[in-house]
């Protein structure tokens, strides 16, 4: 099984659930920005939830499949197509050898995930296949994909003797992921420096919309909105930051730390986006607006726990349908 990058995308990297256990060495965890989409993409083709997938932005790569293989796309809708045939997200698709996957326009979301049955043959670093650009390790040669890169599958596709041609077969079931994404205000828990904000600024945090600026990437989203002010100037000692931490920058604007965040930081931590709502934020492109709503820590934990149970249930359902299909 192999696929060939015919045209390079904006920044296409392999990502799994992240590289944990090495932050004491300054190694950030990385991993998929939207872990829900990543796990659903895997479940649709029968993979382990933590199998590395290809994370793509728009414009995404043009990909030639050199062997017939079962694939899935999840996350953003970039109007994927094979030839003239549209490929919906969250369906398993049997892509015939010689077919070319391309993306025609961004409809919704910011990141799409491509999984193939059996997973990709990648290099692992510190127990993760996530691409680590700084050290040029993990994923495919530690970098974003380029034209003419050929990526090999871990296993021979069970469908390799299937007919060929620029075509595909969309299997008839779909994973419904709508409920996993937040439609209302993104929820946050207070950070250690939250109470050092002026009262008016604390109110502004929940009363005013925020705008994701163009200076946003996998490290962090720069947020434009009302100026937020501290009661008193604050000299911070650097300490840990995590996925979803909302820091107040010296220009009185916010930054939300995303998957490739540094391990430590020295700006006031106003709050933290809750884990359950992080994938929703990860699917917001620069230019999007959102608002914030504060919740308690135990609420954040309960919401995440329930989300995880629902996600496991959906993964199991996807696996079950696939096994049924493969058995016939």
């Amino acid at each position: 099984m192999s696929l060939l990058i015919q045209k390079q995308g904006l920044s296409d990297t392999f990502q799994d659930l992240g590289r944990y256990g090495y932050q004491y060495l300054g190694v950030n965890p990385g991993g998929a920005m939207d872990t829900i989409a990543m796990r659903i993409a895997n479940a649709l083709v029968g993979n382990d939830p933590g199998e590395a997938v290809l994370e793509m932005y728009f414009p995404a790569a043009v990909i030639l499949f050199e062997e017939t293989v079962l694939v899935s796309l999840a996350g953003a809708d970039f109007s994927a197509a094979i030839g003239e045939k549209e490929i919906p997200v969250c369906h398993p698709v049997l892509v015939h050898a010689g077919s070319v996957l391309h993306f025609r326009g961004r409809q919704k979301g910011a990141r799409v995930y491509l999984a193939i049955q059996g997973g990709f043959q990648l290099s692992s670093w510190l127990n993760s296949c996530s691409t680590h650009l700084k050290t040029k390790t993990g994923g495919f040669q530690g970098r974003a994909l380029q034209k003419n890169d050929r990526i090999i599958g871990k296993q021979k596709s069970p469908f390799r003797n299937h007919p060929t041609g620029n075509a595909c077969e969309i299997l008839h079931w779909q994973a419904n992921v709508q409920a996993f994404y937040r439609k209302e205000a993104l929820r946050f828990v207070a950070g250690e420096e939250y109470w050092l904000l002026q009262k008016a600024s604390r109110h502004k945090l929940e009363d005013h919309p925020f705008h994701i600026s163009r200076e946003s990437d996998r490290m962090g989203f720069r947020i434009k909105g009302e100026s937020l002010l501290l009661e008193n100037p604050l000299e911070m000692i650097s300490s840990a930051i995590t996925r979803g931490t909302i820091q107040l920058l010296p220009d009185n604007q916010l930054i939300v730390l995303m998957a490739d965040h540094q391990t430590t930081g020295g700006y006031p931590r106003i709050g933290h986006i809750i884990s359950a709502d992080f994938p929703t934020l990860a699917q917001m492109d620069s230019g999007s607006d959102f608002s914030l709503q504060q919740v308690t820590l135990s609420e954040a934990e309960a919401v995440f726990y329930q989300q995880e149970l629902n996600l496991q249930q959906l993964q199991n359902a996807c696996n079950f349908r696939l096994q049924e299909y493969l058995a016939t």
């Binding site: 944990y20 256990g21 932050q23 000692i237 300490s239 840990a240 995590t242 995440f304 726990y305 995880e308």
Partner: peptide, 18 residues
């Protein structure tokens, strides 16, 4: 607990909620 982040005068433990 899946990660430890020591800093100047703090230690942070990153854990798995589920």
């Amino acid at each position: 607990v899946r990660d430890l982040i020591p800093a100047y005068n703090s230690l942070t433990l990153v854990y798995d909620i589920f």
